[in-house]
Design a protein around this nucleic acid. Structure first.
Ligand code: SF4
Ligand code: SF4
Lengths: 162, 162
DNA sequence: TTTAATTACGACTAATTTGGTCGTAGTTAA
DNA sequence: TTAACTACGACCAAATTAGTCGTAATTAAA
């Protein structure tokens, strides 16, 4: 439940791998697939999406490969999501390319859903890939105490933070 | 892509419907299904999950039904999610009850994924159902979690602009 | 005490989405 | 020419999600 798309994982795996390369140094899909065990073709497609999105540059032919062309610290996760799985549209009635939802017209939560969609996009836009990749462990946020209170009030434990 | 679970929508539909009832007034699944066109059985199951989670109380038998027993303004969306689709675990390696992920061991993004998982949970915990349901159009400046919590602790309700 | 309206719930099927593979073509250095 | 790559559409397989069915339990009212 609540799983993210596998493509996003392959994208992050590749991005993290490429991040440690010298500028100009290329990375092949074969290399990524061999190093991390992810399926070649699937990973290849993901890299192609990233290339289409301008996040990486591809060089074809023998000794070809990919290289990062953007600063991951300034790259919102939302953009990666968009490149590999498309825009965040959490319900059928938002952008009804496929006919939309049959409940539309009687539905009472369209606005709330639009609301949530917008907030989620905000969330993903406010989170950089660099931040995600290097942040090991817990980052103390000014929100922590309040969250703790809220969670406690709701009768939940806070997840243990390493 | 990026769709949320349909169960969550049915939950929100039901919750929003019940919110306008008087205390003690019951709502039947039949009523919800008829009003909004959602499938009876599916909606029924969702309501049962909400009842199991203590969000609503059920009354059985003829003239039975459900009623809200918690203040939606203090209810993090995360709890509803948990009740209807289980805990937020965005990747297979986070809850290895089902064997986990085959990439584990060679994977270089486990920490980042754990990170994202935690941030998403924070996001859903910091968003109340009331907040979500109220805003029809745009909320110009979403009130910060800190302020909301201060208000809650001070015993004030959120301004329910309807 | 019967009936009708309701919740409760497990098992099942259908539909959709996701994940992964294959085949083939294009590009380029050696 | 060949080998090592990227590019990409079509396809198949697996997993998840969505919805249905059958049946039981509960309760108010006839
Ligand atoms: S919000 Fe209402 S109309 Fe839009 S998809 Fe969900 S149920 Fe259908
Ligand atoms: S983070 Fe790595 S190990 Fe965990 S599920 Fe994703 S790919 Fe598998």
């Amino acid at each position: 439940m609540n799983k993210i798309n596998r493509k996003l994982e392959y994208a992050l795996i590749g991005l993290k791998h490429m991040r440690s390369k010298q500028p100009g140094e290329l990375t092949t899909v074969k290399e990524i697939a061999a190093t991390y065990g992810c399926p070649f073709e699937a990973t290849s497609k993901v890299m192609q999406s990233l290339a289409a999105g301008g996040l990486v540059r591809s060089e074809q032919g023998a000794h070809g490969g990919y290289q990062l062309v953007r600063d991951l610290n300034r790259l919102p996760l939302y953009e990666v999501l968009e490149m590999v799985v498309g825009p965040v549209e959490i319900a059928k009635c938002l952008h009804q390319v496929d006919g939309g939802c049959e409940l539309r017209g009687s539905c009472n939560v369209i606005s709330p859903i639009e609301n949530l969609n917008r907030k989620l996009i905000e969330f993903y836009r406010g989170l950089t890939v660099g931040e995600l990749l290097e942040g090991r462990g817990f980052v103390a946020k000014p929100q922590s105490l309040e969250l703790r209170d809220l969670a406690a009030h709701a009768g939940h434990e806070l997840a243990a933070v390493e």
